[in-house]
Design a binder for these strands. Structure first.
Lengths: 204, 204
DNA sequence: TACTTTCGATACGCAACAGTAGCGTAGCGG
DNA sequence: CCGCTACGCTACTGTTGCGTATCGAAAGTA
């Protein structure tokens, strides 16, 4: 049992053998970290196994001993990604809660999720399974966030309000970053909260 | 003057010489059409010059005679794209107008813009100029749409209402298609109009 | 110690693709 | 007719990148 916990063995990972020299778990970690960071930086197509090997300071053979091919490696890295939960603010007022939540969300999307989304766009044509996996990951973050909002809100919220928030806030932020190409500064965050989110959530 | 009109010569195009056999404009058209359709199908990275040559039934040399490289070809194709304006509905009620407009917008995004956005994601890292060009194209469609809405609306609209529509509607549609991975069916269109857009625009 | 497996290093084989070059032919203008 | 260019075709160079093979050394286990 304890041994099994030390060898996580995601479903994409090639089975760990019982005999001989054991694998180095620090190399497991280094490979996944390098894959994830490169994925967000350059996207799926531009991600090369050689680059992963270089950044993780590991021989290419060491990667292929663990993962069958590039798709399996990327899937494992995405699955391995830590959830990234927002700091829960002490709910003083609904507006303050939303402001801090949207500010965190904008940072999170700009820094990480845009890269993942690029990979999603590119990969969804070639590998539907990988695309589905990424959608799951992205949704996991968003639901974790709205759950916290619903639990700690300063005002009692209608059940549909949190769902509306989850539907609208990430969408508008993403659209601004990618399509408009403008930064999500403090003015934009305030605009999103005051002109869009608060009217919607109070109206429900 | 008339001759200049027949030879559009976009800025990415290699200059058309004054002597010798003239270029065939049908080949110009076929090259740009093939490039654009392939771009929306497979994205920028996966777009190969060989595929463009094959689909347009043109030799690869004929492409390189016109465009310096792949980036110039794609930029010219994107710039050449026709605006795709929505059918303007006879404004019976604001809700009807919004329903038909959102329905058209959802179809348009699902069929074309997702592919262009994929190219945008991929290209924005390698070629900032190309990314800027694509943003311009995408915005051109959206502003054309909101202008029509503001002009023909059944109810008088606040000046901020059309801007809110342009900011929220494409964002939520895109988010649903890409992140949620669900189709924009009639139920979703009604939900978007009744639960999000109408409350927002009436409140302004 | 014998056996098994990991790990790094390097070199491959293979395919895809960008971009170029040369050749022969087809059109257009002077 | 002559000069110029477009066009298709084929072949070619150079690069990139996936995935494999091999070898020797290291590190566990029986």
């Amino acid at each position: 049992m304890a041994d099994a916990a030390q060898a996580p063995e995601s479903s994409d990972m090639i089975r760990y053998p019982a005999m001989g020299r054991p694998r180095d778990s620090r190399r497991d970690q280094a490979i996944l970290d390098a894959t994830l960071s490169l994925l967000t930086e350059v996207g799926y197509e531009q991600l090369s196994m050689e680059a992963v090997a270089g950044r993780s300071e590991v021989a290419k053979t060491t990667i292929y001993r663990r993962y069958r091919d590039k798709a399996a490696l990327v899937a494992a890295a995405v699955r391995h990604r830590s959830p990234a939960t927002p700091a829960q603010p002490a709910g003083k007022s609904l507006r303050e809660d939303l402001l801090s939540l949207v500010k965190w969300l904008a940072r999170s999307i700009a820094e990480q999720e845009v890269g993942l989304l690029g990979a999603l766009f590119a990969g969804m044509r070639n590998d539907a399974r990988l695309a589905q996996e990424m959608r799951q990951i992205l949704r996991r973050d968003e639901t974790a966030m709205t759950d916290g909002l619903l639990r700690q809100a300063a005002e009692p919220l209608a059940p549909g309000a949190a769902a509306l928030f989850a539907e609208v806030a990430p969408a508008v932020i993403l659209h601004r970053i990618v399509v408009a190409g403008k930064p999500c500064d403090a003015a934009f965050v305030a605009h999103l909260v005051d002109d869009i989110l608060l009217p919607l959530m109070r109206n429900t």
